[in-house]
Design a protein around this nucleic acid. Structure first.
Length: 568
RNA sequence: CGGGGUGUAGCGCAGCCUGGUAGCGCGCUUGCUUUGGGAGCAAGAUGUCGCGUGUUCAAAUCACGCCACCCCGACCA
């Protein structure tokens, strides 16, 4: 590609509303332009990246035996009413009416449509298994679209759905997809991790999320370097403390803590470790009041708490409800002397001589001990998020917490849709059975943002070569002024292009600084400079974007040398 | 949906408090010079000051309403 024949629109400054690096860089590099909140145009340069991601995804899905189709973006309400999601889905579902007042939605996902296809097309176990996928634009009316393409409302997604005659075959395909996703993200050149994820109410042996690792990621992942264990912190189990509860060593005493309502403030005020404090969180299940207890430095895991049968679903108690049940305003509440249901985190149940609220405004209690000062907890559950340093749930080391951006999710749907929508088949003995289903998603457009979030420096994007808009930037210094430079650059360009290298020759009439800065901003991984300075010595200059030591290469070998630097 | 903030040239911003009819940087156009890291000089073009209503002799500026966008509202008892 000749830059003079392409469209570049790089900016020195990013719009003020771009918050994170990838969003800023995508705007600055001219990859995307905003049309409305969470809705972006993919500019020519950005589209090249998107298409490369798409192509790798498609190649690997095909290789794994999935079959591509394309379903409508607009879907009739009836299908969603049939699955029950028309009511359940909420305002994220963009609903609309046609001229006949019939209701439709813009598809945020396609379980209903594909299940409808399957029940019409598949009659016999002989037609199973089948895995259909598509790469298609979806729309979810996010409450707060942000971070550019990372949490947009309109986005490009690969979604695949598999149908099976039995659970064992679903598990086989699930493993197949796990391996396929691993191959896809490896080929994309991204550092990633597959993590066990919450299966919600559906159950099954599995759900895994694939996360691109980046410090700015929205999700926290617990992983254990000593083993292969990795899980979303939403899911990662916090084991009970290894050491048994110590014997009481202090008498219980009342401590004045005026104005100190947070554990951090109380610990600082009393000059005790935060790990000696206990916080109490008041929740309601219907009209039942419960007190959840966590160590001061721990955080409540709402997903874990919501899985406790007699709490599901729960909500946080109002101030008025707290006053009614404990006779004390929030900030100083605790389990001592309280005639309420107490649910302690495993860690709290092992604590002794701890500090907690006194149920009296302005006071906490120190030296509190279970069994002596307060009845033993009514229930003990794992209700906290794991933190770095916790024992790994598989017993093989300690956990670290890393951050990630979710770019893929594989899930065993089982018969959730096939049963309600009557997607059945006849098995070998002639019995009608619901199909076992799996679903597998990849956020194609999000991958572009995630890749940048993971790979950038102060000059711009560091695209991994497989998804870079161009593999090689050929930068002639003085293309319009020097016949020698032009001739040599054209010659090298032709040689590379002929060899199938994805090369951009920047023949624009700009100063060298502009050309260098643009090539770096848009993240082209390899750069070759042709200038009169080098030409005098018969050399071109090669520099890798990522770890750039410039190298002088004899002109005659330049084309061959560049090809040895390419990964594919 | 609540709380806060911002809307002024393509982009980034000042001007608003204290009303007097709009400016800076980048970008854009033209010319000359320059040419290995986002050039210099000179001359230009580009604004319904988000929209509407009101107050006023006079509104970017004050008031009210609407719209759009951004941030917070998930470690809290």
């Amino acid at each position: 590609m000749r830059a003079s024949a392409f469209h570049f629109s790089t900016l020195k400054e990013a719009p003020a509303d771009a918050e994170i690096v990838s969003h800023k860089l995508m705007i600055r590099a001219g990859l995307i332009r905003r049309l409305a909140g969470g809705i972006y145009t993919w500019m020519p340069l950005g589209l090249r990246v998107l298409r490369k991601v798409e192509r790798i995804v498609r190649e690997e899905m095909d290789r794994a035996g999935a079959i591509e189709l394309s379903m409508p973006a607009v879907q009739p309400a009836e299908l969603w009413q049939e699955s029950g999601r028309w009511q359940k889905y909420g305002p994220e579902l963009l609903r609309m009416r046609d001229r006949h007042q019939r209701e439709f939605c813009f598809g945020p996902t396609h379980e209903e449509v594909i299940t409808d296809i399957a029940r019409r097309e598949i009659r016999s176990y002989r037609q199973l298994p089948r895995h259909f996928y598509q790469i298609q634009t979806k729309f979810r009316d996010e409450i707060r679209p942000r971070f550019g393409v990372m949490r947009g409302r309109e986005f490009l997604m690969k979604d695949g759905y598999s149908f099976h005659a039995g659970f064992a075959d679903l598990e086989r395909e699930y493993r197949n997809m796990y391996n396929t996703y691993t191959r896809i993200f490896t080929r994309l050149g991204l550092r990633f991790r597959a993590v066990a994820a919450d299966t919600g109410t559906i159950g099954g042996t599995g759900s895994h999320e694939f996360h691109v690792l980046a410090d700015s990621g929205e999700d926290a992942i617990a992983w254990c370097p000593a083993s292969d264990y990795a899980a979303n912190v939403e899911l990662a189990e916090a084991l009970p403390p290894a050491l048994p509860r110590a014997h009481p060593a202090e008498p219980m005493r009342r401590l004045a803590t005026p104005g100190k309502t947070r554990c951090e403030d109380v610990a600082e005020h009393l000059e005790v470790a935060l790990t000696r404090t206990v916080k109490a969180i008041a929740i309601m299940h219907d009209e039942d009041f419960h007190l959840l207890l966590l160590r001061g430095d721990h955080a409540l895991n709402e997903i874990k708490a919501a899985k406790i049968p007699f709490l599901s679903p729960f909500r946080f108690a109002s101030e008025e409800e707290i006053e009614r049940h404990l006779g004390c305003r929030p900030g100083y509440i605790g389990p001592v002397g309280a005639a309420v249901s107490v649910i302690a985190d495993r860690t709290v149940a092992q604590m002794s001589d701890f500090v907690c609220g006194a149920n009296e405004p302005g006071y906490h209690l120190g030296g509190v001990n279970w069994g002596r000062d307060v009845k033993e907890p009514d229930y003990v559950f794992d209700i906290r998020n794991v933190v770095a340093g916790d024992a790994s749930p598989d017993g093989k080391g300690t956990l670290e917490i890393v951050r990630g951006i979710e770019v893929g999710h594989i899930f065993q749907l089982r018969t959730r849709y096939s049963e309600v929508m009557k997607a059945t088949f006849l098995d070998e003995s002639g019995h009608e059975q619901p199909m076992e289903m799996g679903c597998y998603g990849i956020g194609v457009s999000r991958i572009v943002g995630a890749a940048i979030e993971q790979n950038h420096d102060d000059r711009g994007i560091l695209f991994p070569e497989p998804i870079a808009p161009f593999a090689v930037a050929l930068v002639p210094v003085g293309y319009r002024k020097s016949d020698a430079v032009r001739a040599e650059a054209d010659r090298l360009y032709a040689a590379l292009a002929q060899a199938g290298v994805d090369v951009l020759i920047d023949d624009r009439d700009e100063r060298p600084g502009v050309l260098f800065a643009d090539a770096e901003l848009i993240g082209i991984p390899h750069r070759v400079v042709i200038g009169e300075r080098g030409l005098r010595d018969g050399v071109a200059e090669y520099q890798a974007r990522r770890d750039g030591e410039p190298r002088r290469i004899p002109l005659a070998e330049a084309a061959r040398f560049v090809r040895t630097q390419l990964c594919a």
